[in-house]
Design a binder for these strands. Structure first.
Lengths: 203, 203
DNA sequence: CTTTTAATTCATCACCTGGTGAATTAGTGG
DNA sequence: CCACTAATTCACCAGGTGATGAATTAAAAG
């Protein structure tokens, strides 16, 4: 009695295992972080042989990078922001952030946050992304000494990262369930002060 | 020729392996997160047999909890804060946070942050600590409808968590290397606004 | 001094990890 | 139709994982 074996070889067209693997990876990395997720778990979640993961990606690191890298293009998300006058930029920034994080990229973004904060080795990745890809755009055209502009950027980042963490990762209520408009009204003034406000104590 | 074997049995007094294990655990959890750290690595770092870890702690979870739980007592740290008038509380809060995170508890705290943010399962722990142990004290005596006070507390948390992450975990410069006084002057106003300021849009 | 208790080491378990190489099958280009 | 390439499965490997139980030794308690 030959049991119905799983046939080897190429599937009949229409399968997209690669995408399934990426989706599964995003989901698991988002839930359990980088170290907490195994290739086999990913394969299982994607209903795929573990070896496929290696077929499509060189290893766990590349899988992480691919599944998580640019879950959204910063340039695109911040397109509008960059050319607004710095003095009224905050609201647009907060809105862009919220819209992005509430969209389809959420899984990938949370995965990125968890994986990247979870270990010293990967924190560098976060630092790079935040400062190069994001802050440079957010702070474009802000006047003042370089050092001061960098500090302002760091402060913007601190409030933004904190907001994201509280709302999407840690999920503090009622912040997590507040409306987008409320959040904008509540935190945009903080951001605006960091960008152009009088910080009165900057050496 | 009997090689000098490592003697079994109890060490001659003065050894404190338990403490060594906890210190090693704090260090490694801080660097590599919960999943990224193995019991054997901890044992190696502590120069101790792996089985000792099980002797002193039931398992990895208990080790994590013990090494990281209350790296500092919130009640103590926030002792002064609680009884200040809410309208001038912000500066004290920021100063307390910075002092705490720059003290000997830093390793444990970073470990807590990394381990706790790194996975969904452990995020609950962070939520509990933040809301019960910390926010309840920080927001003690603030007037207004419950829901609104909670929201204010969440906002305080968002800025505080963001500051900690940017300064101690991600290490964004120049924020990471700014003086304690500068940081206080820069972010205390934000916190103060969240505690007692006019948020003008609270439903 | 003797009994009890605690600290330490060792050998071992079953399992999971990331990774490799080959065999098998299907679609594709010529 | 045939050669080629890519997708898929399988059978492994060496090593690390958390965990357990027993043996050994010293300190503490009586």
């Amino acid at each position: 009695m030959s049991l119905p074996q799983i046939r080897r070889g190429r599937r009949s067209a229409g399968d997209h295992s690669r995408e399934a693997i990426l989706a599964a990876a995003r989901k698991l990395f988002a839930e359990k972080g980088f170290e907490g997720t195994s290739l086999r778990q990913v394969a299982r979640e994607a209903a795929v042989d573990p070896a496929m993961v290696h077929h499509f990606f060189k290893g766990k690191d590349e899988l992480f990078a691919s599944s998580v890298e640019l879950p959204a293009d910063p340039a695109e998300v911040l397109a509008g922001v960059e050319m607004m006058d710095p003095s009224v930029r905050a609201e647009a920034i907060v809105r862009a952030v919220l819209t992005l994080w509430e969209g389809p990229a959420q899984h990938g973004l949370v995965a990125f946050a968890r994986g990247t904060i979870g270990s010293k080795a990967k924190s560098g990745m976060m630092r790079e992304v935040v400062s190069r890809a994001i802050l440079s755009r957010v702070m474009a055209g802000v006047s003042g000494p370089d050092e001061q502009v960098l500090l302002r950027g760091n402060l913007v980042a601190s409030q933004t990262v904190g907001l994201i963490l509280a709302r999407y990762v840690i999920r503090l209520d009622p912040l997590a369930s507040a409306s987008q408009d409320d959040v904008v009204r509540l935190v945009a003034p903080t951001i605006q002060r960091y960008i152009t406000g009088d910080l009165d104590s900057l050496k």
